[in-house]
Structures are given as structure tokens and as C-alpha cells.
Design a protein around this nucleic acid. Structure first.
Lengths: 154, 154
DNA sequence: CTAATTCGTCATCATCATGGTTACGGATTG
DNA sequence: CAATCCGTAACCATGATGATGACGAATTAG
């Protein structure tokens, strides 16, 4: 669904931007990162794990250890980060209709296909933005300034 | 966001497709709808509430009451359903960085703007599909047949 | 009028995803 | 050896999501 109460992507973007910016190449501890992101250090490490496996960051234990970028900030698209953290998780949120119902099967097939189309569209947008863009403020702005639509209570 | 364990959109699409299809104009009870969608009747009514307020469906109590479409299936885009149920909920999932951190503020602003861009992209895709398309199988298929990407354990 | 049906809605509960917290082992530095 | 910091597991707290049960109001059948 529309997810999201999942902040891993945001935390990852934040950390990479932080590493690309305010550090002079020195490694940064997950403690320091946790203060800026406002999540706890363990979670920072959990989020960064997949990014390290993908070669985007390095980590070292020990006294002057911590995290540092392993690639240039301009070479990391947000789409890459998204895929590493969200994988192929559905964007739209599917249900499990009665398999004996013809309409149910068709709807489910359609929504599954549509979910991939939507995920591709999202990836296309995220492909346009790099960590460097976030750092320098070069992020695209919505075409429609703010959704003027009639609201909906929640 | 990366949501989604939220099936309201899927249920709504299912129900509207069901109403557009296998019924000859007769009202359908939420009991019958709940069997096909495989969720409980109360949930069906809760999902359909906003759609009724928007004029997409009608409901009537009583012996031969139930739900029926109030508009043509070809006139209902999935984007409309999405907006009615998900509103402006974030797609990407934001975090709450330390407001005292300059990087944190910039990241948060960027992600907020980017979230709207992504939501627009999603809406654009959903705009191309109507309930009638789902009923007849005319739903677009992904350009990349299936994400071939190297997996990521979960 | 009375009974049956069906929606509308509330209150409550179970489950699950997400993160927070604590803990401890291993690696690195000084 | 002591201090620092990652890696990871275990456990817990919170919140979102639906399921379930209940009851009133509206509508129709008899």
C-alpha cells in the first residue's frame, strides 16, 4: 500500500547525504548518525547493512571506526537505495480474494501487473535523483504545487 | 512506503469490478461482496463508505438492499479510487530528523518534495486504468516483464 | 403491524510490521 | 590490556490493520 510507516528509505538517504556532506572523509559512528537521524544506533546499522553489501558504504570497527561512503555521492541514485531496502515489495497493497471467484482472479492478476507498472514509475522518478542532488538541494519539485483536492477526513 | 500491508485499495477495485461485472443491476449485499473479496462485511462497508460519499456507488438498507454502481465502470479511474482511499498519505515513508541538524532539514525537505513527485507519477499510471479495463483485462503490463534484479533476503 | 433483511457504526480484540532497548561477542586502535 | 565501535540476537512497546460481535435504523415482505 499504500504504505508507509516505514522510514528505512528516509533514514538511508539521510545517512548517505550526511556522509557525503558534513564529514571530511573521516568515518562516522552510528551513534553520531543516530543523533542526526533521530533513530537509535542499532537501527542505523540495520538499515546500512544492505547498503554495505551493495558496496555503497564501508564500515570499520575499532576506535576510530565508523561509516564512510564507498562511492561518489553523484553516482548513487535514490532508486538504487529504494531497491536495496524495499526490494520488490508491493506498492499498492494486494488482497487475497476467493480463488474460486473468476472476478477475484482477474482483479488480482490485474492489480499484480499494475503494481509492477507503478513500481517502475516510482523507480523512474527516483532514478533522476542522486544523493548529491539531495545534498545540494537539486531535487525536482512537484508539477502540481500542492494537491488542492477536496480533503478526506482520517 | 513503501507501504503496504493495506488492502483497502485492492478491495475497493475488486468490489467495483464485481459490481460492474457479474451483477445485472441488482444490488449486492456486503455479505456477498465479503465472500468474493475474502474480507469481512464490516470491512467492505468501511471501504465503500468514501466511495459512496464520492458518488461512485449507492447503498440501500432493507430486504433487497445492497450496493450498486452509481456511474459507468469506464468512467471510474483507479487513480480516483486511490485518492479517495489513500488521500495524500506519503508513498515513501518519512522520518523525523533532528531539527537542529542542517543536513537533516535539507533531507527532510527534499524527501517531502520527492514524495509528491512520486505520488504524482503513481497517480499518472493509475489514471490510465478504469474499472472497465480491469473487468475486461485491459490493464497495462510492466515494460520489464519481471524484475530480474539480484534478490535480497528478507 | 410484525418479521426479516441489510446497512451504519461503535467497541473490542488479534495480528503483524516497525523500531527501540539491552546485551554480548569480535575487531581495531592506542 | 583498555577503550571504542561494529554485528547481531533477543526481547519489548507501539501503532496500523482487519476481524468480530453487537445494536439501532431503514426498508421490504407477509
Amino acid at each position: 500500500m499504500a504504505r508507509s510507516t516505514n522510514t528505512r528509505f528516509a533514514v538511508a538517504v539521510h545517512v548517505l547525504t550526511y556522509l557525503a556532506g558534513s564529514t571530511g572523509g573521516r568515518p562516522v559512528s552510528s551513534d553520531e548518525l543516530s543523533e542526526s537521524t533521530n533513530v537509535n544506533p542499532v537501527h542505523v546499522r540495520r538499515v546500512l547493512g544492505p547498503l554495505r553489501e551493495a558496496g555503497l558504504v564501508r564500515s570499520r570497527p575499532g576506535v576510530h571506526g565508523g561509516w564512510e561512503l564507498a562511492v561518489e555521492a553523484g553516482a548513487v541514485t535514490l532508486a538504487r537505495i529504494w531497491r536495496l531496502l524495499q526490494g520488490d515489495d508491493p506498492m499498492l497493497g494486494l488482497h487475497g480474494p476467493d480463488p474460486a471467484c473468476a472476478v477475484g482472479r482477474r482483479v488480482h492478476e490485474s492489480l499484480t501487473a499494475l503494481d509492477r507498472v507503478v513500481a517502475d514509475a516510482v523507480a523512474t522518478e527516483l532514478e533522476k535523483v542522486t544523493v548529491h542532488d539531495v545534498l545540494t538541494g537539486g531535487v525536482p519539485t512537484p508539477r502540481r504545487p500542492t494537491r488542492p483536492s477536496g480533503g478526506r477526513a482520517r
